[in-house]
Design a protein around this nucleic acid. Structure first.
Lengths: 215, 215, 215, 215
DNA sequence: CATGAATGAGCCTTCATTCAT
DNA sequence: CATGAATGAAGGCTCATTCAT
């Protein structure tokens, strides 16, 4: 009996609560897809349901209301953000490698997940109006800031130079560059990503005290 | 008499076209108020009309559709952004004065116009989904970047040091700091503004080669 | 018990699809009533909903849009047209009986279902402007032409005379007489029906080669 | 002076009443164009005004309301109907010429003025619902019936045969053929007109006692 | 548990009509 | 006379939400 139970532990949720949470996660994921496609203002519960394999009625079984669902999907998004880019830090062994790897990762994200990321900026804007989103959005912001901080710290370490900006400023800088670039990229500006990478490189080199002369 | 008449010439629209444009501006302003209060996703034409002194029917008399109206109000917003903060540069005569003045102005804006500014971040997010907004949003971004660039250039001039980051990075940095602070401020974080100013000061001093030791 | 159950099988829809179709038919019928009362130009979905026992929201649950609903109700109408008047042909055994029976049926229809029939002329006009209606309207026209053709064929058979006009002309003739009479009847002309019947009889007798001398 | 006045008589309306009527006619004509294009149900006063050279406000100066305007345009239409096709009767000198000429004229009308004519069927349908239209529509119907009667009478005269159907039936027949053909023609049926002419010819020959054997 | 029928508030838009200028 | 600004009812339609099954 015990062994059977242990097997189940790995495969299926044991309790009703687990199943409930699992289903919420599943629906939150569907919401995420819809939000990325249409944006918060144009996202309806019916559309979300159609992006899942469930009927729209079920949404109200697992969520109190629309906001509850969106909050859940924000958390879904949050879970993904924590570890993103950490592989860059893990593998790079020189300043150049890390710089190039980081900027390349930014570029890839922009190219491959532009839709997913505009969702994030949209949700962050919603948090400015909807109190229910704020705590989670703030947490995501903190995660992202930490991620940037880890990368920049590693960079400083490799360069054997102190980091010259506070974490908030570093996050602001790269988040801002990314956000600007995202809009240009979505607008069809082909050179947007490359241009962002050039500016990003200049900034990074400056931050570790290796100024580029031709600014 | 003649002088009075001349003054009137400047105030009262002479032609029908002027009047039409004036009314559009008036309604665009009402839209701006509503957007600032409710956010794009919750803004309806009826609500906008109630924020104006007109019936909702009038909105469709002056605008083709909702997007047309919002675009108009985005431009309204744009017009205000161009010169904001320029007084700071104009009056400051030392690095400290300019730094303090700039950061104080940021703080004041956050305190006094938090609502107006969350509107901007909301609209910028909408532009990620709605093509019709992109051109104007991009223009506003450019204006704001230029504004930051003017301030930082003046700062470098006063410090007799070269500016070490590209304009895009400078804008990203301060826009990002502002955006983060705005969310915290709206969330009730009393120390958010002050903390942003501290980080901002560190960043500025670093940018002009006067590093602060205790990062 | 078994037989009762079998009867129920025929009455109660077994599947969800059946139920859906049944409700569409029900709402199409309500639309038909409204169209007959107000005419196409003044028929609104809200009015149709009030003629049913449902809220107006339900209309959009069962139909894609207004045209979809009207097309459905046109088909509802079509189904009724196919067999109308066939009893006349079935029972009459002489030229006189058939002639009288047919004209009496026309008169009865005008008296009893004037509203229902103006609907038809209205829809046929709409088809001239709205492509979506054309196929179904054309089908109804064909059904009615066939109906007239069956009656006239039987008449020719009873009279032992060939039919001297093509089907299209026969349908045109009686449809036209009916349409003219309908307008007069709705205008309050008490003698309209009788007068139509007199002219109809003259035409019929002529068609089978039994001319009436005093035209 | 007198001569000047006389010249004016020919060129401009002398009285206010004339001018008023003239303007009504002008606007009624614009309404006619719009009705032909969009159909009654989709025709708005603004659209009509845009098809004229006046502002929409002026419509309410010359007409009590929308119905008043449409009635006026119905009368406009009526005026055109009286003499249409009379040239056919005037020039034809044989049965064949008249038959061919009449059917050719019907075909030309269908080809060239399909839009204008669907308007007529639309208005006639409206009369079934809207009392205000009935008198004028009935008058137009009478005019058209007379027109058909004149043609058929002339035909009978040329054929030296009595007319075998009452006027109402003759009008019904050709109006019905025309109406059926119009729908087919608008539906893109290329052979509709020719087919109608074939059936029309059969009917005509039958009506004057020259039966076609292969019906 | 899950479905989807049903609701009704609300949205954007169109429109006939009124009226100050 | 003529204009066009302004109104507000109504239209088609979307949507979050409820609830019987």
């Amino acid at each position: 009996m015990a062994s059977i139970k242990e097997k189940q532990v790995d495969r299926v949720p044991r309790t009703r609560v687990d199943k409930f949470a699992e289903r919420r996660a599943e629906l939150g994921e569907a919401a995420l897809q819809t939000l990325a496609t249409l944006g918060y203002a144009r996202t309806s519960l019916r559309e979300i349901a159609q992006n899942s394999e469930f009927s729209h009625g079920v949404l109200h079984y697992y969520f109190n209301d629309k906001i509850d669902l969106i909050v859940c999907s924000v958390r879904q998004y949050k879970a993904r953000c924590v570890t993103r880019y950490d592989h860059v830090t893990a593998t790079a062994t020189t300043v150049d490698e890390l710089t190039t790897g980081f900027l390349a990762a930014l570029g890839d994200t922009l190219r491959d997940e532009a839709h997913m990321h505009r969702l994030w900026y949209d949700l962050r804007s919603q948090a400015l109006f909807e109190e229910a989103f704020r705590a989670d959005v703030a947490e995501i912001d903190k995660s992202l800031e930490n991620m940037i901080w880890r990368i920049m710290s590693r960079l400083a370490e490799l360069a054997d130079e102190p980091l010259r900006l506070p974490a908030s400023a570093l996050y602001a800088l790269f988040d801002g560059l990314f956000q600007q670039c995202l809009l240009k990229h979505l607008s069809g500006d082909q050179g947007a990503i490359e241009s962002m990478q050039v500016d990003g490189r200049k900034a990074i080199l400056e931050l570790i005290g290796r100024p580029v002369f031709a600014v």
